[in-house]
Design a protein around this nucleic acid. Sequence first.
DNA 1: GCGACTTTGTGTACGCGTTCACAAACATCT
DNA 2: AGATGTTTGTGAACGCGTACACAAAGTCGC
Lengths: 228, 228
Amino acid sequence: MIADPAARQEIPDATVARLPQYLRALSDLADRGILSVSSEELAASAGVRSAKLRRDLSHLGSYGVRGVGYGVEMLAHEITRELGLARDWPVAIIGVGHLGHALASYVDLTTQGFQVVALLDRDCELIGQVIAGMVVGSVDDLERIVIERGVAIGVIATPAQPAQKLCDRLVAVGVRSVLNFAPCALSVPEGVDVRKVDLSTELQILAFHQQRKSPAGHRRTPLLEVAP
Amino acid sequence: MIADPAARQEIPDATVARLPQYLRALSDLADRGILSVSSEELAASAGVRSAKLRRDLSHLGSYGVRGVGYGVEMLAHEITRELGLARDWPVAIIGVGHLGHALASYVDLTTQGFQVVALLDRDCELIGQVIAGMVVGSVDDLERIVIERGVAIGVIATPAQPAQKLCDRLVAVGVRSVLNFAPCALSVPEGVDVRKVDLSTELQILAFHQQRKSPAGHRRTPLLEVAP
DNA sequence: GCGACTTTGTGTACGCGTTCACAAACATCT
DNA sequence: AGATGTTTGTGAACGCGTACACAAAGTCGC
């Protein structure tokens, strides 16, 4: 019934999340002039098990050759196409503090399918300055700039307080992909994707495991949780 | 059976990853003077379903009151303790580019269980400068500084190339928790935790979903590229 | 004190992702 | 060409995490 010949089977989210790693590993191999790679080798480069890699790649199609491996160039091309990086996605960065500045200067982006087309901030001191070859615009002009420059992905690099309102404004003018660095949850309507990067959260997760590893001095487990 | 009286039941990784969000939501509620909160309300603040929240909290113990909800202060305290944030963890940031600078200036860290005790870089221009109230040290002194200041968590904010070697040096002097911002996979021995934050990866995942959302077909894929 | 209402904690079912293990498919050597 | 070795692609089993639905346990009003 769901016979949709054009659309191929859905690629699992977990697989999509790993495709960028594979792509990076393949790029490194290509730079070193390597033409072919086995699933074992590529998996080691990307930090996963070979079975997982093969399962992931099988969702894209059969691009390997049994007894040989995968063609580096070809596989990189296929992943690039699947991820939608064949073209350049216009990105707007909202908030040009230290973090926004770091993002704007991040070289990898421009070479890997993205182009920063707008830097916006609220601070009058920053507006008009040139950062990473781009003039910082006023956040007041967000709607106009987003529309004019066809922004597809919005990056929120502001404090938590204004984040939700800025996100709403982005969504209102058609942005359906948001990368959120502000330490707060964003609520968006159906059809809009938000991904969150949270430095504190990552550190806190590390702290949890570190605490469990500490050999000396954790003594406090009530251990009375049994009751009839 | 798996009767291990001293060790309490393991807290699932997925739950641990959400505890920081709950803690943040609870802090906001506490700031607004709210004393008690239901699972429904807290879940909404953190952006999850209430059933998931209750399941997560049940792993910590029974800190709620049926018919009432959870005590904000008490629950925040319990999560803080469970995450190991009761004390301050000494953090070293390796690489003081834009990103390292942003991390060093990140206020949330100091107020939430972490203290940046070292900033290290390779660049002679940076060494000696004061950033966020701290003198930048030389990466040559990494081992001495890490040991002297009791660094527990290392943050790698360098390009990909030197990342693995720096990670090895951190691990060699006892660091067992690493937060990696470099766009590469780090290999570490058993017992060392590495968490990775990758801006490119996140954007590429967004690009994938954005491509699938594009309503009218951008049909610029050749469909056929094989030559028999 | 007792019934009605609210909210937690959890038994249970389900779906997704990972891993194992192996047959199918290709290359190479004699 | 046939035997041998290598590597992919995948069926099947397992484990983890999520979602549903409800009993248990509390509060509140009278």
